[in-house]
Amino acid sequence: MVKSSTLLGLLSGAIFGLGLAVSGMADPARVRGFLDVFGAFDPTLAFVMIGALAPMAIAWRVMRRLERPLAAESFDLPPTSPIDVRLVSGAAIFGLGWGVAGLCPGPALADLALAPLAVAPFVAAMALGMVLQRLTAQKM
């Protein structure tokens, strides 16, 4: 039997993937265009962010009035502080990779349906990067 949390994840993921494809952000060249602020700048990603932030800003307000999530036992959310070396260096390394390839995890996974052969090396390398981070983290 498929669990309800799996169906919830599937539904949310599908809406997210549809949104990525509709917005144009599934195309690494478009994302690179947004990051190319000193060159052939393409502002589309800014509108994607505005569109995504608006419902989420409302959702956070609604969330504060809820005792518990509608379909789960409790809220389990990441901390909003502190700002440490790990956060900043991780974000910097992530930004470097995002700039090099024009891909981040959401579009990369969505592209498995749109251009599987083209994006597969990125997804495999991304998984390897996550494994390497985990291996080094345990030694720190």
Binding site: R86, G90, A91, G97, A101, C104, F122, G129, A137
Partner: peptide, 19 residues
């Protein structure tokens, strides 16, 4: 693709998140 993927995976986990 390979270099970018490695950095994105490593950095996203170290920095606890992505876009």
């Amino acid at each position: 693709l390979l270099i970018g993927g490695l950095l994105v995976g490593y950095g996203a986990r170290l920095g606890s998140g992505c876009t």
